[in-house]
């Protein structure tokens, strides 16, 4: 990457890595949560719904601080995880966690909508043909909600790429470690003569966002054609 300096390139690569893992790690949980919210009724459903949406409404700094309070080195949970070799605070994994938490509501909303659009009668038909519940999900529900999963994942990816407030609060802004694209832009803007580097990173941000949008549009159309069954 000729036109990006090594420091800038590091930020872009880190952001891509953070966003990828944020989405990959939260997707299974996102699918289960969306399915549960769409199809099951259980005590505490509204509380779960509220919890999922909380990061969307809370100031990101608050979310980041809450993460620091629960998973920081001084917190009991964070300490316990640290003794098992899992460390989040001030590491790129923490950046991924913060990005994943912030993107989670967007992901769940998109998937939930697509689950609600699946006709439960098809799942009934599958069961009468002898499919056990997990097989019904894997062979009927999952293929039919694929467009929603894809939309949710791409939306979450874009959100994770741009996450700033919770990330910087939870894992700070350490070059090469937790300095993601938005943190890098912020850092460059703080030093005299950093505008050029900041602008280059802005261009990358715009490019990635547009690329993700385009990709989701294309994949979405392709899947919709497959699922529509014409």
């Amino acid at each position: 990457m000729g036109w990006l300096g090594p420091e800038e390139w590091a930020a872009v690569a880190l952001s891509l890595k953070v966003a990828f893992w944020a989405v990959a790690a939260s997707l299974p949980l996102g699918i289960v949560t969306a399915y549960a919210l769409a199809r099951w009724s259980f005590p505490g459903k509204q509380i779960l719904n509220g919890l999922v949406h909380l990061p969307l409404i809370l100031p990101p700094v608050v979310t980041g601080y809450l993460l620091l309070l629960t998973l920081g080195p001084q917190a009991p949970l964070g300490g316990a995880l640290e003794s098992m070799g899992i460390v989040f605070a001030f590491r790129w994994t923490g950046a991924a966690l913060a990005a994943g938490v912030m993107a989670f509501p967007l992901m769940v909303r998109a998937i939930r909508l697509s689950v609600e659009a699946v006709d439960p009668k098809l799942e009934e038909a599958s069961a009468t043909l002898g499919a056990p519940p997990l097989a019904v999900f894997a062979t009927v529900t999952l293929p039919l909600i694929l467009p929603g999963i894809l939309a949710g994942a791409i939306l979450a990816f874009a959100k994770a790429m741009g996450e700033f407030g919770a990330t910087i609060t939870f894992v700070s802004n350490i070059p090469g470690q937790t300095r993601t694209l938005p943190s890098a832009i912020y850092a460059f803007l703080q030093v005299p003569g950093g505008e050029a580097a900041a602008l280059r990173l802005v261009a990358v941000s715009v490019g990635v966002a547009m690329g993700a949008l385009l990709l989701s549009e294309l994949l979405g159309r392709w899947i919709a054609r497959r699922v529509a069954g014409a």
Partner: peptide, 20 residues
């Protein structure tokens, strides 16, 4: 449960799987 009853149901609205 329905999947262990071994009854073939033909529904009024056919209910074919649209993605297959």
């Amino acid at each position: 449960p329905p999947h262990r009853r071994r009854l073939g149901v033909v529904f009024q609205d056919a209910r074919l799987f649209p993605h297959l």
